[in-house]
Amino acid sequence: MAKMKGAIVVDLEKCKGCEVCRVACPNDVIAMAQEVNHKGYHYAYQEHQDACVGCANCAVVCPDGVITVYKVKLSD
């Protein structure tokens, strides 16, 4: 079976740090930053570079629509 590899891009300034995406991720890819953005929120970011499969669960559930998802199919 082909393996999927994904990546997310978070609009850091629009992220409100609600953590709904972190909980929704099946592979614990997302963590909240120690730093804050200009609004003072600990924004979400892709902590584990290899674990993302590009399922887009995080983006689908993000209330602020700040996550963009990319995915590639890796050949066996």
Partner: peptide, 26 residues
């Protein structure tokens, strides 16, 4: 190498404006 337009699977619809939402986090 993954973050390329051809690999895009999900992004915010252009039918949502770019204005930050006024709602509380979450």
């Amino acid at each position: 190498d993954i973050i390329k337009p051809e690999n895009l699977v999900y992004q915010k619809t252009p039918l949502m404006t770019d204005k930050p939402l006024s709602y509380c986090p979450g």
